[in-house]
Amino acid sequence: MQLALFWLFSILMLAFALGVILLRNPVSSAMSLVMSFISLAAVFVTLDAYFIAVVQVLVYAGAVMVLFLFIIMLLDLRAEKRRRVRLSAWLGGGIVVGGFLSALSQIVVSLPALHVPKPDVSQPLANDVALVGFALFRNFNLPFQIIGVLLLVATVGVVLLSRKELK
């Protein structure tokens, strides 16, 4: 059952991801991206990471995607005209991606430790929000503050960069 769900959502996720980079219309790409992220959230659920799954849906599907779609509409982007794709770009991209995948597959095949089924946890994971929260606020207080500063800077920056006329 788990395997079936895993495959279902993984294949959905990968298919939509392919859609993102293959579709010509930016709106379709963005919609594929959203679907891909939602499938990813489902894959997170199969890994018992409920909190991350929820955050994934909220932040990506909720916020990031709206931003993308908003920008696409704002800029009134149309479907790309068929541009001539340079052979060199394909070749270079193919080599990089191919190299990455072959290295990864070799590692995955060669490591027996990776081919074990999911171990059982000692306690039920239903309240993993609490567990993540503990880790976040107890151990990772300092990085959390840094992220706070980062968000402040990003806010200031977005305001600066997107206002038509600064006051």
């Binding site: 990085p143 840094i146 992220i147 500063v149 980062l150 800077v153 990003a154 200031v156 920056g157 600066l160 960069l161």
Partner: peptide, 12 residues
């Protein structure tokens, strides 16, 4: 986290 703080502020 620190690297991203630096990078994002430098983008701006």
């Amino acid at each position: 986290c620190a690297l991203e703080l630096v990078t994002i502020s430098l983008y701006i």
